[in-house]
Design a protein around this nucleic acid. Sequence first.
DNA 1: ATATGAGAC
Length: 794
Amino acid sequence: MAQKRTFQDYEADDDPKKKSKTGEIIREDKQQERDPKRNPYLAHMYNSEDEEDGGVGLNGFASNGQAFNNTYHSYTRGKSLDSFTRHRTTSAQASKAEDGPENPFTGNPLSEKYFGILKTRRNLPVHVQRDEFLKLYQETQILVFVGETGSGKTTQIPQFVLYDDLPQNRGKLVACTQPRRVAAMSVAQRVADEMDVTLGEEVGYNIRFDNKTSSQTILSYMTDGMLLREAMNDHDLKRYSTIILDEAHERTLATDLLMGLLKEVALRRPDLKIIIMSATLDAQKFQTYFALEEDKQAPLLAVPGRTHPVEIFYTEKAERDYLEAALHTVLQIHATEPEGDILLFLTGEEEIEDACRKINLEVDEMIREADAGPMKVYSLYGTLPPHQQQKIFEPAPPPSRPGGRPGRKCIVSTNIAETSLTIDGIVYVVDPGFSKQKVYNPRARVESLLVSPISKASAQQRAGRAGRTKPGKCFRLYTEEAFRKELIPQTYPEILRSNLASTALELKKLGIDNLVRFDFMDPPAPETLMRALEELNYLACLDDDGELTVLGRLASEFPLDPALAVMLISSPEFYCSNEMLSLTALLSVPQIFVRPNNNRKRADEMKALFAHQDGDQLTMLNVYHAFKSPEAQANPKQWCHDHFLSLRALQSADNVRTQLKRIMETNEIQLMSTPFEDKKYYENIRKALVAGFFMQVAKRDGTGKTYLTVKEEQSVLLHPSTVLASDAEWVLYNEFVLTSKNYIRTVTVVKAEWLLDIAPTYYNIDDFKKGDVKTALIRADERIRRKKALKGSR
DNA sequence: ATATGAGAC
């Protein structure tokens, strides 16, 4: 049992700088005069490219292959913007237009609801600085905007831009990117309401599988990945007059690539305005990165947020066991602190479920013995089905009897509550200081998840979750010294922690010739880039000069890992593109098999119904075909439940399949099947797998259970979930799972002859060092030669 | 003899 600790053991952090900021405008670095042709302020004096050829900006493509409407806006607009001169407007002008009576963008009368929202909008912190914003926006090409939570930046800044940029007059639109789909959708809806327009008309959103924009759209919220896809087909993003990158501090892979790309586009398109929006105070990095001239930083505008102060407490000594300390702290809050909900950050599903059980037990005891108030404990993590995630928004339980101690809820969550989900009513945050993070080892070519200390920025974000509705408290289960000295300032951006094979292919398609010289905000390790290029070269997506091949160009059209894309594109050679289409989709969605802890045996029995002795991929395909049968489709929900399958995963695979099929058709890749009665039906599929995944093959090590991966010679085990009996000599795997042991998961039996035949460059026998693998390959090669000789002599 | 964070095209 941990020693009881009182809150006096925590040291209150009274450094005022760590408490919430009071707002003042930080304005730096006015843009210098430069060549008038490059000066956007003077751009109206020159014919810009898009004015000469009119529609050129409108021929962009969405990744789903739908062409955007190539006509100028033909609908009636209001007259209140007629007197506006682009990039010369003031907030007073805009406010007047906003006040009505007619909608400036549609000409329709404005609703009562609109005026209600307008009132709240004008109370947002950003509103005070509208003129400041406009001035900077007008005089510079790239602007860094820092707005803390609650400043209104995501909803208001794009509207401020609309009133000054007037994209509707030039057949253009304004883009605002978000790292997450839900954010793009919900913000678009909110802004459509604020502007009194129908979602999908003037204001829309564009995310994978759901494009709610039209030819009338002048403001589009979209995922950063979506804009990146679009850039692959239009390197200059000509449809857009202003591009706003929101939540840039999250440093997603797509945001990082877009930033590098936009820096280049800015030089080619002086008429394009760019705004980088971030919640971090580390704005300096963005300013320096976006300096288009030497020694000149990009200008910055900072707007305060609207949050309540959060008092920070640290432990006096380092905690040996953060889990125990976390539980103890939660219980102590419940026993001694006033009303308010608790948010505890842990690292993963199992840890969270375990903690919830323990808290429940302890709270029951507190209620019995100390008359504590009731507490409802909720777990929260990404793989939880949405309806269960929604439960966290239920109100806290009432006192168990009239006049009794107040009830509260306690949410035990992964990082999902740090960025993606905000829960109002949280007053206490318990932060043990860890999260699971992806790490990539280029030498082993393996990504894995590791429980690691969080960054200072992350810790601040977590603390902020306590101050959304009223002043709160954050209990950090580490010392103040550890916070100051041991935590890194920012979480390493994703680009430094990932396999970059896809990224490298995307950059090539984006027209970046020399990846090593690409201006990354944080350049990845050269070894990681080299690995990626090497992988693409083996996949024949890049030739030996590093140029995109026809195959590479095709592969980049698919929203897939290069190996999956190559597998799919090659599949007609093996007469099974229909089947590979299904399999590719299945391999790019979450696990389809469900295995609840209390019913593992039954789940395994159900899986056995679909098992194919030669591999898990074939088994998955059997599942998919059964799922599509009329019998299953009559009641898919029941059918999936009965067979321990994830309906969500299978539906999502279906969605992906439809998208991939469309891309296949657009690129005239033949769709075909080997007849099911043909004895080569499954063999052809296994060969097609080799065409993409020949680099992920392992050979059995002697007669034991261990396998060795072919080139890296890592010792691995077949994952216990496999349908394979462990005596196949060669197996191809789709996933390398690094946990307590090295496992390969989703495996299929293959033949050495196929490897030599289908991937001769990778399996060039001379390149292998002496050993078991080489010997086996030589023997297979001899078998092939004998067969050929036999054929020849007949 | 089974460990996965959250997000995206």
